[in-house]
Amino acid sequence: MRADARRNRERILAAALELFAEREPCVPMEDIARAAGVGVGTLYRHFPDRAELVEEIGADALRGLNAFVRERSAGDAPRWEVLRRVVEYCAGRPFALIKKLAEDGGTGRPERRALQRECGALLAGLVADAQREGTLRRDVTPSEVVDLLGVVVCRPGARADDPLTTVMMDGLRARTPHG
Rank of each mutant, 00 (worst) to 15 (best):
A59Q: 13
D60S: 11
A77T: 02
L123G: 08
R23Y: 14
L149G: 11
Y44I: 04
D139L: 12
G125M: 07
M169R: 01
L13T: 04
D49Q: 03
A114M: 13
T165M: 02
G120I: 07
R6K: 12
L62F: 02
T176H: 15
D162V: 01
A174C: 03
K100F: 12
T176R: 15
H178V: 15
R50A: 03
L172W: 09
A91S: 07
S143Y: 06
R84I: 09
V151D: 05
L164R: 06
G58Y: 07
Q131W: 10
T141W: 01
E118V: 11
R138G: 15
C90R: 14
F95M: 02
A5S: 13
A174W: 10
G41H: 06
R9A: 05
P163Y: 03
L83K: 06
R137Q: 03
R7Y: 07
G64F: 00
A61S: 06
T42W: 06
R70N: 07
V82M: 01
D31H: 12
D4L: 13
M29G: 06
L149C: 08
G106C: 08
P25G: 07
V27H: 00
E10Y: 00
R137A: 10
G106W: 13
V167K: 10
T176V: 10
G92C: 00
D129A: 15
V27E: 00
A158G: 01
V146M: 00
